[in-house]
Amino acid sequence: MNAKVVTISSGKGGVGKTTTSANLAVALAQENQKVVCIDGDIGLRNLDVILGLENRIVYDLVDVVEGRCRIRQAMIRDKRLPELFLIPAAQTRDKSAVSPSDMIRLCEELRDEMDWIIIDSPAGIERGFRNALAPADLVLVVTNPEVSSVRDADRIIGLVEAEEKGPAQLILNRVNPSLTKRGDMLSTDDVLELLAIKLIGVIPEDESVIVASNRGQPVTFANNSKAGQAFHNIAKRLLGEEVPFMDIEANNGLMNKLAKMMKFRGD
């Protein structure tokens, strides 16, 4: 096996890096891939919470880097998907506890055993981002269809290019078709026109993502949500399958909403 290292980044905080990392890892594991996620956000760890593995942490990334344990000991196996692992971040330290070369060494060690190494990058463009970028084979930039998030994504794409890790690919998260339709939100085309990189996924705005994350049960586990489906599609595209982009608007159009309301009244 020779794992591919995928770094999930965005620049801006709160656009869904960690959610994307968790869901993509789950989706890949469901495709029978061996996946390990590394939480790169040392000091502000979240990935363990979203994956619902918080209570099983014994060792973390910094323990591995500083030689207090072997990698195997820090890898938490997900009981729902035996092919899915997590290396959590340390909560009591900060980004300077790990260096880019530590990350490269760590990933080199994991490469032989894994199919995919997903690194959840912290927000910002400082040390934490550099750590997450250093071992990357592919960078997925997550952005929301809003101006400030797109601006930061643009910066990240530029930095990825400058580090010769490019071209990055884009995940457009939290797309709200009704807002876009009214022209109150950037459309997918607007974003793509500016960023000019390959789009690998569009995730619709979906309340169930938040609910699922709060329960530590990534939305991808449940098969009935649009967002979950979108993550599955990204996983398939990463595996080289040609998957058409789904029509986000289908279930969210005005007519559908009206229909739902009518149903509600009817009940």
Binding site: R151, D154, R155, I157, G158, L159, E161, A162, A196
Partner: peptide, 8 residues
């Protein structure tokens, strides 16, 4: 011959 992105 390239895109000049934010921050560059």
């Amino acid at each position: 011959r390239k895109t000049i992105r934010s921050g560059f």
